[in-house]
Every structure is written in structure tokens, then in C-alpha cells.
Amino acid sequence: NQASVVANQLIPISTALTLVMMRSEVVTPVGIPAEDIPRLVSMTVNRAVPLGTTLMPDMVKGYA
């Protein structure tokens, strides 16, 4: 089972991601792979991401 990136807090729309905002967790459905966390830092989300939500590729500008 692959770990995915999960929001560690509410991430408001257009917020630049930082390490403290994300954690890795094995979830269903599978989202962005946890090993991509370093790549996600400073990318922005294009929607509000509630606490505990799995980050999907279409939620992060420039990721997909």
C-alpha cells in the first residue's frame, strides 16, 4: 500500500504548501504519492483543502 499526501490542517485556496501542512498516510483513494512531498513545497492549491483530505493531482497548480 502506497502512502499518499494528506492535509495536516485546513489549507486555504491559493495557499503555498509547506512541509507542516502535509503528512503521509495510506488512504483510499490513493492521491499524490508521499514521496512527492518535497516537490509540492511552494506549489499552491487551487481550492480549499480541509484537514484530513487526500491531496489529488488536480488540487495543486502545476503538479499534474
Rank of each mutant, 00 (worst) to 15 (best):
E25W: 06
N8C: 06
M59S: 06
V5G: 01
A48M: 15
I13A: 15
S42F: 07
A64H: 13
S24T: 11
N46R: 11
R23W: 04
V27L: 05
N1D: 12
A48V: 13
L19K: 12
V20N: 12
G52C: 04
V60N: 01
T53S: 13
V5L: 02
L17Y: 00
T28V: 13
S4W: 03
V5P: 03
V27E: 01
V26R: 10
V27K: 07
A34W: 07
S24N: 05
L51I: 13
V26C: 08
M59F: 14
V60S: 01
L55S: 02
V60P: 00
M22S: 01
V45D: 00
R47S: 10
P29A: 04
K61E: 15
K61A: 13
P38I: 10
A7Q: 01
I11T: 01
E35G: 12
V30N: 15
T44F: 14
D36H: 14
V49C: 06
N46Y: 09
M56Y: 08
P33M: 06
V41D: 03
A3G: 14
M22N: 01
Q2Y: 15
V30P: 09
V60M: 04
E35I: 15
G62S: 07
N8P: 02
M59K: 02
S42N: 13
A64K: 05
M21V: 03
L17T: 00
I13E: 14
P29N: 05
A48N: 15
I11S: 02
Y63C: 04
P33I: 08
D58E: 15
V49Q: 02
K61D: 14
V45C: 05
I37G: 04
L10A: 15
A48C: 08
L17K: 00
P29Y: 04
L17Q: 00
A16C: 06
P57L: 04
R47A: 09
V6G: 00
P38F: 11
P38W: 13
I37N: 00
V6Y: 02
S42L: 08
I11E: 00
N46K: 10
L55E: 01
I32M: 02
M21T: 02
Q9G: 04
P50E: 10
A16T: 12
S24P: 12
G31C: 03
Y63V: 04
M59D: 15
V30L: 13
G52K: 04
P29H: 05
S4F: 03
G31T: 00
T15H: 07
S42Y: 10
L10P: 10
R47V: 14
M59H: 09
G62Q: 11
N8V: 09
T54Y: 03
P57V: 06
A16M: 11
A16D: 06
L10S: 13
L19S: 11
L51Y: 13
N46E: 10
E35Q: 10
I13R: 12
V30T: 11
T54E: 02
P38L: 12
V49L: 14
D58H: 10
Q9L: 15
T28L: 13
P12A: 10
M22G: 00
Q2C: 06
S14M: 15
Q9S: 08
L17A: 00
A7C: 04
L10M: 14
K61I: 14
G52T: 00
N1Q: 15
P12I: 04
I37E: 00
N46T: 12
V6L: 07
S24A: 14
M56A: 06
A16W: 06
N8W: 04
P50Q: 14
T18E: 10
D36Y: 14
L17P: 00
V30R: 15
P57Q: 06
G31Q: 02
V5C: 05
R23P: 02
V60K: 00
E25M: 10
V27Y: 01
T28A: 13
T54I: 11
G31Y: 02
P33T: 08
V60R: 00
Q2M: 12
M21N: 11
P57K: 08
V20D: 15
S4P: 02
